[in-house]
Design a protein around this nucleic acid. Structure first.
Lengths: 238, 238
DNA sequence: ACCTGAACACCGTTCAAGT
DNA sequence: ACCTGAACACCGTTCAAGT
């Protein structure tokens, strides 16, 4: 066989961090958080469970790496995109946020993984992307940190909820719609005196648009940033 | 000593859901999320691990119940407080949020438990508390759901991060300050071209005030709500 | 040097047997 | 009726033994 240079790994591909992480992502996508197991993973990689530890420190490391693969891809087009479709920092913040939302919608387990590993790469990527735009928004330096953190926390909060919803839907063996319907039914049965608001929202829950609600929250924060700047109104434009 | 009437359950207290949940809270507080185990719990209760299943469905149920005990207590004074210290809905929203923040600061595992069990009681309590105030804020009915959801998601996002920080600090066997310092060091070592913002924030991370930052985020959202109402300015006051 | 896979020290959960 | 605790079916992780 022509053992030339590039086709190094053909059928018996050597184990590598990238291959392990890619397989982990596939496993998480198809079987959910609880489906990622060193045994299941090593089976798909046609090796023993111990072999993985040559390339990955432990399960936390594996989850963070899988999460980072998704987050890096989600942030790439928005942050350094070929076509700067979004003309203002506000538009770009919306694009970043929606990019994250859509990625988490496709890979719900990312929402749970992002919440872990504080200070780790996946979270930092998002922090950095938001940070650049908040600076471009002319938020005063002393307020930049808390402003970025607010956007970041909100996005992670929604991400975590999506992950929890997916996990529970999977546990119940039911799709998103059926899951929301079951929550709505529970809410509708709450004590009207103690939970008037939640009861009233049971209907809204059934037919709401996650993505639109998410964006509404981003817009609320952006509105807050705008109005905070107006406290000391510069000689600005609209 | 004086064995008067009330000391009904002395040494051999019957197992009850409340006693199990209270012991679980104590265990979570002292040993963290990973310290809550049916074996450790049954040991503290002087019984076998199987006995717990007579009162609790499974571990998820146990965690939700423990979480609810903390959340219910945190929301009680703010929602139905004896002294309505907060005169406006905005003040009351801040009080609710801070009550949650402080409770999670004392019981970091609540941040993780809250994120689970979507539609469950702990989350609903917060939703209800916020919902009442958002209504009082005269947010138009069509926007109430997304507005409440934004506040709720933000609070849960911060809660989840606090839980993750505590978990990691405990894993490293280190306190909050030392943990933040280690993250700051990691950030300061990032590639300056790829992560200029995060690098610059490493210093701010070291000496920031979690609680103040949290409140700044709440105020951003409240500011957004206010400015959204001004789009169609009623004959309003300031 | 790297993989293998049995073994270890745990989990949550069940269920026959006790009382 | 309720508790008991051994047993089951898993985990993540390690490490001698192989190649």
């Amino acid at each position: 066989m022509a053992d030339t240079s590039p086709p190094a790994q053909r059928r018996d591909q050597a184990l590598s961090r990238d291959r392990i992480v890619a397989t982990a992502v596939a496993l998480l996508d198809s079987r959910g958080e609880s489906g990622l197991t060193f045994r299941a993973l090593s089976e798909r990689l046609a090796t023993g469970p111990g072999a993985i530890y040559g390339h990955i420190a432990n399960k936390d490391d594996l989850l963070t790496a899988a999460c980072d693969a998704v987050v890096a891809a989600a942030l790439r087009p928005a942050a350094a995109g070929t076509a700067p479709t979004a003309p203002t920092p506000e538009h770009r913040i919306r694009a970043i946020a929606l990019g994250m939302f859509d990625a988490i919608d496709r890979h719900p387990w990312v929402g749970a993984a992002l919440g872990r590993g504080p200070g780790q790469l996946p979270g930092v990527r998002l922090l950095e992307a938001l940070g650049g735009e908040v600076q471009a928004l002319d938020v005063p330096p002393t307020a930049q940190w808390s402003t970025v953190l607010a956007l970041w926390s909100y996005i992670l909060g929604v991400a975590g909820q999506n992950a929890a919803n997916a996990r529970h839907g999977q546990t119940l063996g039911v799709d998103r719609e059926a899951f929301l319907a079951s929550v709505a039914t529970t809410w509708a049965a709450l004590d009207p005196d103690a939970y008037p608001f939640t009861r009233g929202m049971a209907g809204a829950l059934r037919c709401h648009d996650d993505r639109a609600d998410f964006l509404a929250g981003i817009d609320l924060i952006l509105g807050g940033i705008r109005s905070q700047k107006d406290i000391i109104p510069g000689p600005g434009s609209v």
